Simulated assay, not measured.
Amino acid sequence: MRSAAAQAPTDHASKYLQQLCKHWQHNLAVVFTPEHGTVTFPRDARGAEWATDALVTFDAGPGALSVRIDASSDEHLEAMKGVVARHLDRFAFREAPLAFDWQRS
């Protein structure tokens, strides 16, 4: 597994976490509270070009939304970074683009 984590500075972390999880729960396996959420992207997700699942974890804190992505390959990890950033920026349009300081784990 390849992993990366980032902090996206925002005062609306819980709001964005919930909006994003509600958005994805229609098609993906999602579990969330106002403070924590996980989204599993299956190998057959729409438009997916990878062979195994990916897990995205969100944690809402004061002043930032923490995001962690666990993926099967470097290519998958990079693709998921883009998916997460684009979707979050849609919900955070008033302060987009959010700054992600991705760090490999």
Rank of each mutant, 00 (worst) to 15 (best):
P97S: 02
S14K: 00
D53T: 07
T57M: 13
A99P: 13
D44K: 13
M80S: 05
Q103D: 14
D59E: 04
F91Q: 01
A48E: 00
F58T: 00
K81Q: 15
Q18C: 11
H12I: 04
Q25K: 11
L17D: 01
Y16P: 05
L77C: 05
A4G: 09
Y16S: 07
A48H: 09
A45D: 01
R86V: 00
K22V: 02
D101P: 07
W50F: 13
Q18W: 00
W50R: 10
H87R: 10
T33H: 11
F100S: 00
A48R: 08
A8T: 03
T33S: 07
T10A: 08
D59L: 02
D59M: 03
S3A: 15
M80E: 12
V30F: 05
Q18K: 06
E35H: 11
T38D: 12
A79M: 12
Q18D: 07
V30D: 02
E95A: 09
L88W: 09
D101M: 06
E95K: 05
F41V: 07
H23A: 06
A64M: 10
A96S: 10
Q103F: 14
A5C: 15
A13E: 06
A4R: 00
H23D: 03
K15W: 03
L55G: 07
H76A: 06
V83G: 08
R94N: 11
R43M: 15
C21A: 01
A51V: 05
T10C: 07
P34T: 01
V84D: 07
P62F: 04
A85G: 08
L20A: 08
A79G: 11
F41T: 00
M1Y: 08
A71P: 01
A71Y: 04
S73D: 11
C21Q: 01
P34C: 09
T33M: 13
A51G: 15
R86M: 04
T10Q: 01
G47T: 06
V56L: 06
P34N: 09
Y16R: 07
V83K: 03
S72F: 07
Q18F: 01
L28D: 02
